[in-house]
C-alpha cells in the first residue's frame, strides 16, 4: 500500500499567475481511508522566508469538516479556485522572500495531520540577486542592529 499523501495539481502548468488571475486546480487524497478524514483545509497563502521570522497570510481559506456534515469524496479530485490579489507579489530578495502556495491540510484524527503544498508565483518580479537593477558600490550593503 502506498504512503498516504495529498496530490495537488494546478490547471496552469507554468504556475505563474498575474494579479487578478484565477488560480484553479484540484487535489486528491491518495491512500487515505475515508473514515479517517476529520477535516480538510484548502488555502492559498503567502509566507515569508529568509532572515526574518516567518510571516504568513491566507488569501483564500476553505475548511470542510466531517462534524459539519461535509462530505469527502476520496475517489475523485476536489476542485478549488480563487481570484488572486494585487499583492504581495512573489519575490526572491536577499534577506526577504515572499512565497505563494496552495496548501491542503488533512486532519486525520488523534492529532495527526497530512500536508500537501504546491508553490506558484504571483507576478514576475525577478530575483534580487539576479536582478538587472543597478546597485552601485557596496552591492547588498547592509547592517544589523539589536534591540533588547
Amino acid at each position: 500500500m502506498n504512503a498516504p499523501r495529498v496530490i495537488i495539481r494546478l490547471d496552469d502548468d507554468d504556475r505563474v499567475y498575474q494579479p487578478g488571475d484565477t488560480l484553479s486546480g484540484e487535489y486528491v487524497l491518495e491512500s487515505i481511508p475515508p473514515e479517517r478524514v476529520k477535516a480538510v483545509e484548502v488555502s492559498s497563502l503567502w509566507c515569508t522566508e529568509g532572515k526574518g521570522d516567518e510571516d504568513l497570510a491566507v488569501h483564500d481559506f476553505r475548511r470542510s469538516a466531517a462534524e459539519n456534515g461535509d462530505w469527502f469524496s476520496h475517489n475523485r479530485p476536489q476542485r478549488f479556485n480563487s481570484t488572486l490579489p494585487n499583492s504581495p507579489l512573489s519575490y526572491d530578495g536577499l534577506i526577504v522572500k515572499v512565497r505563494w502556495c496552495v496548501r491542503v491540510r488533512v486532519f486525520l484524527g488523534r492529532g495527526k495531520e497530512l500536508l500537501g503544498e504546491m508553490p506558484f508565483r504571483l507576478g514576475s518580479v525577478p530575483a534580487a540577486s539576479q536582478s538587472p537593477l543597478p546597485l552601485g558600490e557596496g552591492d547588498g550593503e547592509g547592517k544589523s542592529e539589536q534591540t533588547a
Binding site: 530578495g93 536577499l94 546597485l135 547592509g142 539589536q146
Partner: peptide, 8 residues
Amino acid sequence: RTETRDVY
C-alpha cells in the same frame, strides 16, 4: 534583531 540589505 533587525537586519537590512540594500537591493537597489
